[in-house]
């Protein structure tokens, strides 16, 4: 059976005869390029999942940091403090391995209680076969999904800590009399928190959260360092020089691929900026302060 190749255009059947624009059209729509375009979806998927999850983590962190129960408060404060002094990339590299080992260790404890050998043997990390994640006989896509979920979780933890910082500050920025008024109306502190503090907090949090979104967008290429076949991976893969044995031979074009990525990110941040500006203006409608005033220096 002959190998079937997906072709975007009929005339791409024999690349060696192509010239000029037709060559470019066929080159940019060959199988590898189409796969590479999907990796833009990976970036968007990461953003779409990470943003709400880290917001939830941040909310939990900020609420914990305000808690009246001391250990919970320490936990929340510790969580918000970790990202202040340490580069985020250190956390990325750390959590991806650490989480994987933590999950496997937990499963190891649960599934193989009779296992006597230590988990760390010299430079190896050994758990029983049933505790492996994913199981060694799992199909390839399970491995990929597991790896990507770990990356998403890592991003969410790190950006959750950033978000906790922002939300904690925003909760403190809500004027104190608002809460006192709520209490004077007979609300319990829980009611005052949910009905007064939280709805009013968002406008104070928005400049910080907008900023965070920008940082998150600009952190997405770090997926490459975590071993995902993302747009940076494909830029290097496709850009490298291709000898005559390839269908579409070309010299080293990596720089053009990175230029395309640069433009992609500039467009993404520009669009985000416009949307967030509009959102800020709408949310601060009717407030007697300068809309973006809170974004200033601390």
């Amino acid at each position: 059976m002959s190998k079937t190749v997906f072709l975007m255009f009929e005339f791409c059947a024999d690349p060696s005869t192509l010239e000029g624009l037709a060559w470019v059209a066929c080159y940019l729509t060959n199988g590898k390029h189409l796969t590479a375009y999907l990796s833009f979806g990976t970036v968007m998927l990461l953003l779409a999942i990470t943003a709400p999850v880290s917001l939830a983590f941040g909310f939990a962190g900020a609420t914990a940091a305000r808690s009246r129960i001391a250990p919970l408060r320490w936990l929340g404060k510790g969580y918000t403090a970790i990202v202040r002094g340490v580069p985020d990339i250190v956390f990325f590299l750390f959590f991806v391995i650490a989480l994987d080992q933590a999950f496997e260790w937990l499963r190891h404890q649960a599934f193989c209680p009779d296992w006597t050998e230590p988990v760390r043997q010299g430079n190896d990390f050994v758990v029983c076969p049933e505790a492996k994640l994913p199981l060694s006989n799992a199909p390839q896509f399970v491995h990929e999904v597991y790896g990507f979920s770990l990356d998403v979780l890592t991003f969410a933890i790190v950006f959750g800590a950033f978000a906790a910082n922002v939300l904690y500050g925003a909760m403190r920025a809500v004027p104190r009399p608002q809460i006192e008024t709520a209490e004077a109306y007979g609300m319990s502190s829980r009611q005052a928190f949910w009905r007064v503090l939280i709805p009013q907090m968002w406008i104070y949090a928005l400049p910080g959260l907008s900023n965070l979104w920008m940082i998150l967008v600009k952190a997405t290429p770090l997926l490459f360092l975590l071993g995902v076949e993302d747009i940076v991976y494909w830029a290097r893969e496709l850009g490298g020089s291709k000898g005559p044995i390839f269908d579409y031979p070309h010299p080293d074009w990596t720089i053009w691929y990175f230029l395309a990525l640069l433009v992609f990110y500039l467009a993404l941040t520009r669009v985000s900026e416009v949307v967030l500006d509009r959102l800020t203006r709408r949310l601060s409608h009717g407030r007697a302060t300068a809309g973006s005033g809170a974004a200033g220096a601390g």
Partner: peptide, 22 residues
């Protein structure tokens, strides 16, 4: 300001390296 603030430093490094190699 727009170009350097709007794109990831990581990509800037890659791009600049390729440029310097050329």
């Amino acid at each position: 300001v727009f170009v350097f603030r709007g794109s990831p430093l990581f990509i800037q490094f890659f791009f600049a390296y390729q440029l310097f190699v050329l």
